[in-house]
């Protein structure tokens, strides 16, 4: 069982992809615990297993072997529908390429997950507006994604991820497509959410600026955890 403060746990998680019938190992018997309030950076070279680990702990993918817990629930053997429910209730994703729903406005994108959760219309509208304002997107609520800059889109993606109050937010290379100023502002914002609201973040990154702001850094290489360092509180 996970320790009381662990909100996500991987136990000897292995992932082997099949590419044209050739097995391609991506993660090898990796065990890790993410604690409530963590602000973790997964770092490592391309192909080290960062995104795979994020996908596994986010219930987006299933391990070839090993087990994953989200909260007290073991999700390894859940069906598609149940996994979708876990992601809906407990996980927030932020993607490298923003991946907003293109036909929905910024406001509707933020509302989307709350709508799936069954939050009533008035409350989700208020919450989405509050988040967008808080993330500096006031006045852009009705814009569609293709009418927003990359930084603005990524902030909408963060607002969407945290709107549903998930246990954990998993940004995958969140600053990769942003200029340094936008990237820095985004990290400040996520750090603030972490500190002020206790939102747990685990992000994969190559970006030294992101690593610098993380309070815990997990280094991966060839599908194995090479190091797991917790920085002193700053």
């Amino acid at each position: 069982m996970p320790t009381p403060s662990a909100i996500v746990r991987a136990d000897k998680a292995t992932k082997v992809y099949q590419r044209d019938s050739i097995p391609v190992p991506a993660l090898h018997e990796t065990s890790v615990e993410i604690l409530e309030g963590d602000f973790v950076a997964l770092v490592g070279p391309s192909g080290s297993g960062k995104t795979t680990l994020l996908n596994l702990i986010g219930g987006l993918d299933r391990p070839t072997s090993g087990r994953i817990w989200v909260g007290a629930q073991e999700i390894t053997s859940l069906g598609r529908k149940a996994l979708a429910e876990v992601r809906l209730r407990h996980i927030g994703f932020v993607f490298q390429e923003y991946n907003l729903v293109p036909v929905l406005s910024a406001l509707e994108n933020v509302e989307y997950v709350m709508l799936l959760q069954g939050v009533d219309e008035e409350r989700r509208r208020q919450e989405a507006l509050r988040l967008l304002h808080e993330l500096g997107l006031e006045g852009l609520e009705n814009r569609r994604p293709n009418e927003l800059s990359g930084g603005q889109q990524q902030r909408v993606a963060v607002a969407r991820a945290i709107a549903a109050r998930p246990m954990i937010v998993l940004p995958d290379e969140p600053t990769a497509n942003l200029d340094s100023q936008s990237g820095s502002a985004l990290m400040d914002m996520m750090r603030r959410l972490n500190e002020e609201q206790g939102t747990t973040f685990v992000f994969s990154t190559h970006d030294p600026m992101v690593v610098e702001r993380a309070r815990r850094v997990i280094r991966l290489r060839d599908g194995r955890i090479e190091a797991d360092e917790r920085k002193a509180a700053s």
């Binding site: 987006l60 598609r80 529908k81 979708a84 992601r87 809906l88 997950v113 799936l116």
Partner: peptide, 10 residues
Amino acid sequence: VMMALGTPPD
């Protein structure tokens, strides 16, 4: 993406 956000298959 929609599935990642928890949209059910149906």
